[in-house]
C-alpha cells in the first residue's frame, strides 16, 4: 500500500510498489496527461514532480512517492482552472504541434522557473535537454519559457541572425 498525494489530493494505492508512477497515474488514477515515450528515462514525456523535483515517472516506482506529493500536468493550472503563466505562454507562442511531449516539457519548464525565475539560455538547455520534442519545437519552447520568465527579447530578424 502506498500513500501519496496527487495534485494536492491524498490517495491510497493498492498496487505493486515497483509499478512506475507513470502507469499508476495513467491507469489507476485515470489521468492520462502524463505520457509514455520510451520507458527508460530518455525522452522526458513522462515528467512529473515529486515533492517539486522533476522526475521521469516511467522509471520511478510508486514506492518512491510514498509520503510524498506528485504533481502532474493536470495540476499545473490553478484550482480555478486558470492556466499558469507558463501554460499561457505555451499557447501564445503556439508551442505544441502533435503535443504528445508537451506535458513533460511543461513540467520540466515549470520546475526550472520555480528554482530559477530568470534562466539563461544555458540554464534552459540544461533543464530541458532531457525532453525530446520530435516535432522540433525547441525554439518555441525556449521563447515561451522566456516569456513566462519575463526575459523575452523582441524577435531578432533574419538579417540580425546573419550578422550575429
Amino acid at each position: 500500500m502506498v500513500q501519496t498525494t496527487v495534485n494536492g489530493k491524498a490517495v491510497t494505492l493498492e498496487v505493486d510498489p515497483a509499478t512506475p508512477i507513470l502507469w499508476v497515474v495513467r491507469e489507476q488514477l485515470d489521468m492520462t496527461g502524463t505520457k509514455f515515450g520510451c520507458g527508460i528515462a530518455q525522452c522526458g514525456a513522462c515528467t512529473v514532480h515529486l515533492d517539486g523535483t522533476p522526475v521521469r515517472s516511467c522509471s520511478t516506482p510508486i514506492s518512491e512517492a510514498d509520503g510524498k506529493a506528485i504533481t502532474t500536468v493536470e495540476g499545473l493550472a490553478g484550482d480555478d482552472g486558470v492556466l499558469s503563466a507558463l501554460q499561457q505562454a505555451w499557447i501564445d507562442v503556439q508551442v505544441p504541434q502533435c503535443g504528445y511531449c508537451q506535458s513533460g516539457q511543461l513540467m520540466s519548464a515549470a520546475a526550472l522557473l520555480r528554482d530559477n525565475p530568470q534562466p539563461s539560455d544555458d540554464d534552459i538547455d540544461a533543464a530541458m535537454r532531457g525532453n525530446v520534442c520530435r516535432c522540433g519545437m525547441y525554439n518555441r519552447i525556449r521563447k515561451a519559457i522566456k516569456i513566462a520568465a519575463g526575459t523575452d527579447q523582441a524577435d531578432s530578424s533574419a538579417v540580425e541572425g546573419a550578422e550575429a
Binding site: 489521468m31 492520462t32 496527461g33 502524463t34 505520457k35 509514455f36 502532474t72 500536468v73 493536470e74 499545473l76 493550472a77 492556466l83 501554460q87 505555451w90 499557447i91 503556439q94 508551442v95 505544441p96 503535443g99 504528445y100 508537451q102 506535458s103 511543461l106
Partner: peptide
C-alpha cells in the same frame, strides 16, 4: 487543438 495540449486533456490514441 493547442489549449488541450497544455493542460493534459488532449486525447491521443494511447
Amino acid at each position: 487543438d493547442i489549449p488541450a495540449k497544455v493542460d493534459g486533456s488532449a486525447v491521443f490514441g494511447i
